[in-house]
Amino acid sequence: MKVRDLIDKMGLTLFSGELCLDKEISGGYVSDLLSDVMGNAAEGQVWITLQSHKNIMAVASLKDLAAVILVKGQAPDTDTMAHSIEEQVPILGTDQEAFETAGQLYHLLNA
C-alpha cells in the first residue's frame, strides 16, 4: 500500500509532502521516544507519534520512513513542514489516538 492510499482509507489530514505520496509502506512503528525510533524503526514504515517538533523529520528522513502520522490532533509547526518537504517525508494527521491509529494501520496492512 502506498502512502496516498493510506490517506484515503484512514481519512488522514495531509499537512505536507504531497509530492512524495507514492512511497510503499512496509509497516508501522509507534513511539514518542526519538532514540527508540532511531534504534528500532525500519525503512518504509509509517511512524505514529504525538511529537510534532522539527526533530521528528530528521529522524524520519535518516531512517527512510514512508510517512509520519501525528495523532490526537497535533499539527506540525512551519519549520517541521518545511523540513518534511525538503526531506520528502510526508506528515499526516488524525484526531484519533495512537492506539486506534495503529489498530487501523495494522488492519489495513494485514487485510
Partner: peptide, 16 residues
C-alpha cells in the same frame, strides 16, 4: 519532553 533523553543514545551507538 521532546522525546529525547531516554537513556538510549550511547547504547544505540554501541550497538550500531
Amino acid at each position: 519532553e521532546m522525546g529525547f533523553g531516554a537513556g538510549m543514545g550511547l547504547p544505540n551507538m554501541k550497538k550500531n
